[in-house]
């Protein structure tokens, strides 16, 4: 009766949209008479339906071809980089040679061990996991307070959290760096992760998700006298699994890709993250020739973890971002 207005509102939107359909629907009869045969198919525009009525039309083929072309274009730098990562230095410098090279995967082994990429990757991994877990934990607690508790200055607190979106690292970089120095955190994982632990995005999305949980479910818990901790662990977290996974993917990719802040706050190379590690690799080479194959191998390895996470968890990620 009182709290389920968000769902109602979205229902209204649908209703409005349906209303406008009616307006355009008036010309439907004539349209159908002249329209192509595919419009008679049962599904929206499935290939099966089109096949069923005879042929795949030209526009469908065009769509697929365009899509394949764009995808190939988008993937080409990566494919080239992957191919080059197998080439020896002379092969790389032979610009016309665009095939798998003689180095095989040796550059990968070399960059991991001889150039310490495994150490940077480990550092990145530790940083990312701490940031993801910390962000989700802190945001879960904060969102729970914002949705299920009554307390003074609630809106002010929410605004305070949301407003931090306006302060990306560059806006506060000098004092933040000084603060790390004052705290004695330079070159530690604390400095790498601390500033990232609070998340306006995660609090916002979780708050929205909690509000979409039917009031009656919450009221059932209330009638049963379910305590806050039990409610969090047994009800909220299980009911937010998809959202939490999606957020974890977003935050993992975000944390893994950080460059500027680690560059500033970590000067001890052995504690550096892999993005900045890319920069260290730049100078690698012998006799004035850069070993680009090795650098590309490093780039591939650096891309691998976030890419794997994205591919593995694309469904919860897309759900979280609202792709149906």
């Amino acid at each position: 009766m009182t709290a389920d207005t968000p769902t109602r509102r979205s229902g209204d939107t649908v209703a409005n949209a349906a209303g406008s359909t009616d307006a355009t629907g008036s010309g439907a009869v004539t349209g159908a008479a002249t329209g192509d045969a595919t419009a008679v198919g049962r599904g929206p525009n499935g290939l099966g339906d089109r096949l069923a009525v005879g042929a795949v039309d030209a526009s469908t083929i065009l769509t697929h071809l365009s899509l394949l072309a764009v995808i190939a274009l988008m993937a080409s730098p990566l494919v080239l980089a992957a191919v080059m990562s197998t080439q020896t230095v002379p092969q790389v410098y032979d610009v016309s040679y665009l095939w798998i090279g003689d180095a095989g995967v040796s550059k990968y082994a070399e960059v991991l061990t001889d150039y310490g990429l495994w150490r940077y990757m480990l550092n990145s991994f530790v940083m990312s996991v701490i940031v993801v877990v910390g962000k989700l934990a802190l945001s879960l607690l904060a969102a729970m307070a914002l949705v299920y508790y009554e307390f003074p200055y609630k809106n002010a607190v929410f605004f305070l959290v949301l407003f931090t979106l306006m302060f990306p690292v560059p806006v506060r970089i000098v004092p933040l760096f000084e603060l790390m120095v004052d705290l004695g955190w330079s070159n530690t994982v604390l400095a790498l992760t601390g500033p990232y632990l609070a998340s306006a995005t995660a609090v916002f999305l979780l708050r929205q998700h909690f509000q979409s949980i039917p009031t009656s479910v919450v009221e059932t818990a209330r009638l049963d006298g379910v305590g806050p901790l039990t409610f969090l662990v047994r009800v909220l977290i299980p009911m937010s699994r998809g959202m939490l996974t999606g957020l974890a993917v977003i935050e993992f990719i975000y944390a893994w890709n950080q460059y500027l802040w680690p560059l500033i706050v970590i000067s001890d190379q052995s504690k550096q993250v892999v993005q900045v590690g890319m920069k260290y690799l730049q100078a690698v080479g012998t006799a004035g020739q850069t070993d680009w194959g090795l650098i590309m191998a490093g780039a591939m390895l650096t891309l691998l973890p976030p890419l794997a996470v994205l591919v593995a968890f694309r469904r919860p990620l897309l759900d979280t971002l609202g792709v149906k």
Partner: peptide
């Protein structure tokens, strides 16, 4: 369901400390 202000601020404390120390103060 819950109306303890103390409880709410306990839940919010970690977030508020982080944004206070690392976001508002440096800004």
């Amino acid at each position: 369901p819950y109306d303890s202000s103390l409880g709410a601020y306990l839940l919010l404390a970690p977030t508020l400390v982080v944004i206070g120390l690392f976001l508002y103060y440096p800004t």
